[in-house]
Design a binder for these strands. Structure first.
Length: 428
RNA sequence: GGAGAGGUGGCUGAGUGGUCGAAAGCGCUCCCCUGCUAAGGGAGUAAGGGUUAAAAGCCCUUCGAGGGUUCGAAUCCCUCCCUCUCCGCCA
C-alpha cells in the first residue's frame, strides 16, 4: 500500500510514477472519495466528541445525586444521527481502502522504462552456455530417457501441470533443496525457518496477493478460509505483521524451503511441456526485513546470494532488471535471474529478487522503533528465490546432459547424492 | 472430539457500567545523588487516525475480532477466532 498522506499531498507525482507501469490511477474518483471522507470523518468525530461530553456530564450529575432526566432527553437525537453518519463513513472508508489496496508500489527511479518482458535490461551475466557436439535434449526427453520423470503418472493422480519424479532424479531434486538451504544458512547468515503452507486471507493481503491477485491462488475448501501458499514469501514475510521490531534485531534474514502452489490462471498454452510451469513446485525462499536505509544494499546482497547458488552449480545465467511494465505490483524494483536452458536455447527465469520497500510493511503493520526518532516506523521487506528448485533441476538436467542421455551430477551436489556422479540410463 | 481456564500497553499483571488509555511491577529513556562498582531518589514512557503546508494544540478510535444493550462498555449479552490445561484420538 502507498502512503495515504503522499496521495493527498503529492497525487500528481504518484500518478506519474504509476503511469510508468501502464497503471492508470483514477485521480478523479480518488479526489471525490478523499473529499467526502474528510468531510464525513470530521463530522463523525465531532459528533462523537459531543456525545462523550454529554455522557461525562450525566455521569457527574448522577454521582452528585442530581436529576439526570433532562440531560438524557437532550442527548436522545444525538445517538441516532451519529449512528447514521458513522455507517456512511465506514462504507466510504471501505471503498477508499479498496482503492488504496489496489494501487501498485511506486517504482524505483532506476527501473528502466518498458512495457513487457522484452524491455527488461541485462545487468550482468555469468558463465558461458555449454556447447554440445550432439543435439541437446530438453529435460522432458532426458527424464523419460532415464525413466524417472513421469507426467502421465502425475496426470493420473492430479492432472496437467504436475510431475512425478522417481529414484535418483527425485533425490537430485531433494539434493538441490538441501544444498541451497545449507548454503544460505551456513554461508549467507539466514535463519532457517519452517512455516505453514496454508495461510489466511490477512497474510495474503499483507504481502499483496489479495485482494487483486486471488485468481492465481488455490483456495482450500473447509470451514476456515485457507489458501495454499503461492510462495514462502507470504508466511515468512508475515512473521513481522503487526509488530514493532527492536533496531538491534535488524536485519532479519530468513531462508525457507516450501512447496508453492499456483493456479497459473491466464497462462493457458504457456510452457505446457515439462516442469517449467507447474501448479506445485519447490522453492527455497530468502526474505530480509531491514531498516529503510538499508534496503537498496540488501537487495543487491540478496540477489548475490541467489546468484552464488547458480555459480556453485556452474550454471550459466544472466541478471536482468525488470522494466517498469514487468515489475510486480508489490515491488519497487526487481532483479530476475535467468538460467541458460540448452533444451530451449534460452535464458529462463529461475529467481526473482524484489525490494518491496515499505509497501508490504504498511499493509502488514510491520514497524521498527527508530532510535533517531523514538517512533515506530515502517520496515522495508525484500524477498527472492534462492532459487526455484524445480527449474534448477531442469537446468541441471539439461546443462549436465551427456550424449547417451545420462546426466552428470554437479560436484557440489554429489555429497548429497551419496557420492553418485552420473544418473545413467536403465540397462536394456 | 469431550471438559475447563483465559485473551488488557514492550513484558508481567490489576481492574465487573461513569475523567480507565487503563493501578502496580519489570524493562526502557532522561535527570539527581554517590570519588569506581553496587545501591538509591525523581520524572517520563501504548498504538493508529483526523485536523494542519508542517508542528504544537485539540479531537476520534483501540483492552483478541465482530455484533448487541446503554446517555455512557475493558467491565453486561450474543457469535466467532486464538492460546493454555486435562481426557480421548492421531502422524
Amino acid at each position: 500500500m502507498l502512503d495515504p498522506k503522499l496521495l493527498r499531498t503529492g497525487l500528481e507525482q504518484v500518478v506519474q510514477n504509476l503511469a510508468r507501469r501502464g497503471f492508470v490511477l483514477d485521480s478523479g474518483r480518488y479526489g471525490r472519495l478523499e473529499n467526502d471522507r474528510k468531510a464525513l470523518q470530521v463530522k463523525v468525530e465531532q459528533l462523537r466528541s459531543e456525545r462523550n461530553d454529554r455522557s461525562r456530564m450525566i455521569g457527574k450529575a448522577k454521582a452528585s445525586g442530581k436529576d439526570i432526566q433532562p440531560l438524557l432527553d437532550e442527548v436522545q437525537s444525538l445517538g441516532d444521527n451519529l449512528k447514521l453518519r458513522a455507517a456512511e463513513l465506514e462504507q466510504l472508508q471501505a471503498e477508499l481502502d479498496g482503492f488504496l489496496l489496489g494501487l501498485p508500489n511506486l517504482l524505483d527511479e532506476s527501473v528502466p522504462q518498458g512495457n513487457s518482458e522484452e524491455d527488461n535490461q541485462e545487468v550482468r551475466s555469468w558463465g558461458t552456455p555449454p556447447v554440445f557436439d550432439f543435439p541437446a535434449l530438453d529435460h522432458v526427453d532426458l527424464g523419460a530417457g532415464i525413466g524417472e520423470l513421469d507426467f502421465e503418472a502425475a496426470a493420473l493422480v492430479a492432472g496437467a501441470r504436475f510431475s512425478v519424479m522417481r529414484g535418483s532424479l527425485a533425490r537430485l531434486h531433494r539434493a538441490l533443496i538441501q544444498f541451497m538451504l545449507n548454503e544460505h544458512v551456513e554461508q549467507h547468515g539466514y535463519e532457517e525457518i519452517y512455516v505453514p503452507y496454508l495461510v489466511n486471507a490477512a497474510a495474503l493481503e499483507g504481502t499483496g496477493q489479495l485482494p487483486k491477485f486471488g485468481d492465481d491462488l488455490f483456495a482450500v475448501k473447509g470451514d476456515q478460509e485457507f489458501y495454499l501458499i503461492p510462495t514462502a514469501e507470504v508466511p515468512v514475510t508475515n512473521q513481522v505483521r503487526d509488530s514493532i521490531q527492536s533496531p538491534e534485531d535488524l536485519p532479519l534474514k530468513f531462508a525457507a524451503h516450501t512447496p508453492c502452489f499456483r493456479s497459473e490462471a491466464g497462462s493457458y498454452g504457456k510452457d505446457t511441456r515439462g516442469m517449467i510451469r507447474q501448479h506445485q513446485f519447490e522453492k527455497v525462499e530468502l526474505v530480509q526485513i531491514v531498516r529503510p536505509e538499508d534496503s537498496a544494499a540488501a537487495h543487491e546482497e540478496l540477489t548475490d546470494h541467489a546468484e552464488r547458488i547458480l555459480q556453485k552449480l556452474k550454471l550459466a545465467y544472466r541478471v536482468v532488471v525488470l522494466c517498469s511494465g514487468d515489475t510486480g505490483a508489490g515491488a519497487a524494483k526487481t532483479y530476475d535471474l535467468e538460467v541458460w536452458l540448452p533444451g530451449q536455447e534460452k535464458y529462463r527465469e529461475i529467481s526473482s529478487c524484489s525490494n518491496c520497500r515499505d509497501f508490504q510493511a504498511r499493509r502488514m503493520g510491520a514497524r521498527w522503533r527508530n532510535p533517531a526518532t523514538g517512533k515506530p516506523e515502517l520496515l522495508h521487506t525484500l524477498n527472492g528465490s534462492g532459487v526455484a528448485a524445480g527449474r534448477a533441476l531442469v537446468a541441471v538436467m539439461e546443462n549436465y546432459q551427456q550424449q547417451d542421455g545420462s546426466i552428470r551430477i554437479p560436484e557440489v551436489l554429489q555429497p548429497y547424492m551419496n557420492g553418485l556422479e552420473v544418473i545413467s540410463l536403465p540397462k536394456g
